[in-house]
Amino acid sequence: MTTIAVSTTINGDDVEYLCHADESLLDVLRNRLGLMGSKEGCGTGDCGACSTMLDGRIVCSCLVLGAEAEGREIETIEGMAHGHDLHPLQTKFLEHAALQCGICTPGFLMAAKALLDVNPDPTEEEIRFWLAGNLCRCTGYDKIVRAVQDAAAEMRGDAA
């Protein structure tokens, strides 16, 4: 199978790679670029563990072809913290014990960030429905929802 040359932007950096026509963006990130923070839980868009931003919208990178990324902007979990400065969502997930095994955590963080980008003050119901495409089998979601609420409040500057 011949490969396709792709030029794209990942976490703000120019990136070029070669990929097969049938290769998913998730496989490109993990296998070609070493960005293994995005996880494959199902490969069919049902679990959200591979959630990444594509041109400002949250997507399952398992359901995007690597070739489609030409000229686009991609953000992954690896770009969420700035150096040692964690994003408030990352900090709140740690403080609230919002992860147990942690395999779903990168996807949840990316999806939650996408929510707070468009809705800085979501209700519990809005959080729950927005995150319905991210499966967690460990926590029962309680602490995840609380961490998102708390991070949102902090980002809005509300007193805790």
Binding site: G45, I58, V59, C60, L63, A114, L115, L131, G133
Partner: peptide
Amino acid sequence: IGSTQIQSR
């Protein structure tokens, strides 16, 4: 149709 992620696509 589908999740937030699916809606984007």
